[in-house]
Computed example of a mutant assay.
Amino acid sequence: MENRVYIDSRDLGLQVKKENANSTIIDIARRANVTNITVSRVFNQPHLVKSETREKILSIAKELNYVPNAFAQGLKKNSSRIIGVVTSSTYNPFYSHLIQTVSRIARNKGYQIMLFDTDDSEAAEKLAIQTLFSYQACGILLSAVRDDKAYSPAYLDLADVYRIPLVLIDRDIYGKKLSGVFLNNIEIGVRAGRFLAEQPEQRLLIVGGPEDSEITKDRTAGIMGALIGNNKQVEIIYGDYKFDSQEQALRNLLSDKERWPQYIVGLNGIITLGAMSICNQLNIYNQIKFFSIDTPPYCESYGQRIPGIYHNTVLLGEKAAEILFKLIEKPKNMQTPLREYVPGELTV
């Protein structure tokens, strides 16, 4: 039979420490023999507490694994100092650079960012907004999962109830008259179309987002309008913003050499990158030219410079933050929505 020896930790002079995950300022006050108010001041107004007392309280707080509850503090002050950023894709450089800019500006003003990536899910977007409402966020920047005219999420009415400023980025929600920063998508399309009209290639393929997307509609209409009278042959593939649903349609098209485009026009950077990747897999990358609206991720890092209409995402972030903080600081003075349009730059 196996022999087992059981040793009580007390026999070794050890004290088993119990985790204090739920410690409160009351526990700290009792141990430090001070009032609850004194403990609270250490974490909120430390300059009002003597250094000796402050160090004692912080030492006990560390021993008890106490962490100040920012949420509870926010409820007491009716302000959490949280700025919510809800975007459909943090992978897309269009949003990642913008978020970095907003985060820097918010931090300099004493706010913190709470970031949500909805991955184009309406349910995830709804949950993200509800979470920010529950945290009493001071303001929300939102790039919605959809930009068709039928999209009218119910949570927008709650934003008015909670009086939380909500500023749109890039994608508009129609009929709501919300503040936001946008791109002039018809102008983008026209400028792209003018560039393509000057090129000798005749067969063009436009790869866009959802067919009912107002961004896709406007950019496509701008391109087609600028191509009138140039005898270009244009095909269009619709799908989603992430290029998931366009992939098979593009592979099918490229399987027929007679239909190969001479130019592929991606209506956002992710779509362009997806088309480039497929052409590379099929060993026809060098036989097709590309034009992109917004930067395809990481292309320049690999020496690939794609002509396109590119936007200053730092400027977009600055404009979005400027509008949001105006609404936070002077909400009663803003009777009409604040809307900015940021121009793109043709890069060849």
Rank of each mutant, 00 (worst) to 15 (best):
A106V: 15
Q45A: 12
R81L: 08
V167C: 06
S40L: 07
T295K: 01
N36K: 10
I237F: 02
I173D: 00
L58T: 09
D160I: 08
N286C: 13
D244L: 15
R339D: 00
N280V: 04
F71D: 11
K326N: 08
V181R: 04
P331D: 05
T87S: 04
I83N: 02
L267K: 02
E19D: 09
N286I: 02
G239T: 12
E122V: 02
I99N: 04
K217N: 03
E125I: 07
I278M: 05
E211L: 11
N65P: 00
I7Y: 06
G84Y: 03
V34W: 06
E340I: 11
P307Q: 01
E52V: 15
A192T: 15
W260V: 09
E322Y: 06
S9T: 05
L338Q: 01
G193R: 06
S121T: 03
H311V: 15
I7P: 14
S59Y: 13
I278H: 02
A137G: 13
I37Y: 01
E340L: 03
F291E: 05
L183M: 06
N20E: 12
L75A: 12
S255H: 11
N230V: 15
T336N: 03
Y135Q: 14
Y135S: 14
A221W: 10
L166G: 01
P46R: 06
Y341Q: 07
K217W: 01
N22I: 08
Y135V: 09
T90L: 12
G180V: 02
V145Y: 09
D294Q: 06
V234Q: 01
Y6L: 11
D160G: 14
A29H: 03
R251H: 13
V161S: 15
C299P: 05
R54P: 07
G189E: 13
D120C: 00
S179K: 08
V16T: 08
I188H: 02
K332W: 12
A154P: 00
Q73L: 10
S51H: 08
I328V: 02
Q199H: 09
K319W: 01
L196M: 06
T118L: 04
N333W: 00
D11A: 02
N108A: 13
F133C: 04
R10M: 05
A154F: 01
L75F: 13
A192N: 05
G344Y: 05
D256A: 09
K326W: 00
N268M: 10
N69D: 14
L156A: 04
L253F: 04
D212C: 04
G193Q: 09
I270D: 02
F94D: 10
R194H: 12
E329H: 09
Y310L: 08
L158W: 08
L253H: 06
A226N: 11
N283R: 14
G209L: 13
C279F: 12
K77S: 13
Y285V: 15
A21P: 07
G225C: 05
E211M: 12
S121Y: 01
D172Y: 01
A321C: 15
Y162C: 09
K50G: 07
A32T: 04
L127N: 11
K149T: 00
T220G: 07
S292M: 08
P343Y: 00
I7Q: 05
S213E: 03
V34G: 02
A192Y: 03
S277F: 07
R41H: 13
L324H: 03
L58D: 10
R146W: 03
P307E: 01
T216K: 00
